[in-house]
Design a protein around this nucleic acid. Structure first.
Lengths: 138, 138
DNA sequence: AAATACATTAAAATCATTCTAATCTGTTGA
DNA sequence: TCAACAGATTAGAATGATTTTAATGTATTT
């Protein structure tokens, strides 16, 4: 079977074989020029609405995990019962709107570079994320 | 019944009545000069080891939630199956050691103040948190 | 001290996530 | 090309944190 090589590469580089289900997941995540925030549940819903193929939860989870590990997706650090992922893997930050449980991007240029003076022996910094919680201003 | 007024106030200000169980939770959380990070499970374990009273999970959850809401505790924004709380409510940040699933404080003085230029109409910033993920440096 | 409002509890329910084990499909090497 | 194998898919079960329930208990108010 032959797939869009763009997605085939992404999958292979993430340690996954290209399959019909995974290509569909790629289409949903990477087809658009727009980046977005999603939960696993969101993703399953979009696939169900868009596609005529059925993809099981287990497949969605393992594919998203592999992309996250490889760096094609980023998990956003917030406390929520569900994990949020971001298709925008460039360096940027987030507002989390606590009234509506919604994430809003903050462009890198809108935050001064975060400099951390403390170091931990034997450890290196993998990522730095800023989360600003916002609420209705009364 | 008469309790340490320090804890009684904390509880009442959080909208809770002082009870034997809740006072015990306060003792564990606020008795020490040291601040610490904990999960609900940790807290229950400490209470079981230290005290001769039994406190149900439901009571621990509702008490911790009330303190968090009031601001006597802070929930730390990381993706983990469990929620992490911090008894240090002063403005500071965290490393999250991904190898050991452990949080490490970063003093406010070790991070330049984070300035966010973007604003969202009708919303105000409630908190700004920096999470720096660290891993073994090879 | 009675009446009320809130608290406590064990157990059940919920919900995201992970695991399982049976079946299926890409992939590889002859 | 095609058999054999490694890895993928799936529904459903298992797990584990958190929330809810509903019966009973306790602090509070009058």
């Amino acid at each position: 079977m032959i797939y869009d090589p763009k997605y085939e590469n992404k999958l292979r580089e993430s340690g996954l074989r290209p399959t019909k289900q995974r290509i569909k997941i790629c289409e949903v995540l990477f087809n658009s020029t727009e980046t977005f925030h999603f939960t696993i549940k969101d993703l399953v819903k979009i696939i169900e609405n868009q596609a005529n193929i059925k993809v099981s939860l287990a497949t969605v989870y393992n594919t998203v995990h592999a992309f996250n590990k490889k760096g094609y997706l980023k998990e956003i650090p917030i406390n929520s019962s569900q994990s949020y992922y971001d298709t925008n893997i460039s360096h940027h930050h987030h507002f989390f709107d606590e009234d509506e449980n919604k994430l809003i991007d903050i462009d890198q240029n809108d935050v001064d570079e975060v400099m951390i003076k403390k170091t931990i022996p034997g450890k290196k910094i993998k990522s730095i994320e800023v989360i600003a919680k916002i609420v209705t201003d009364n």
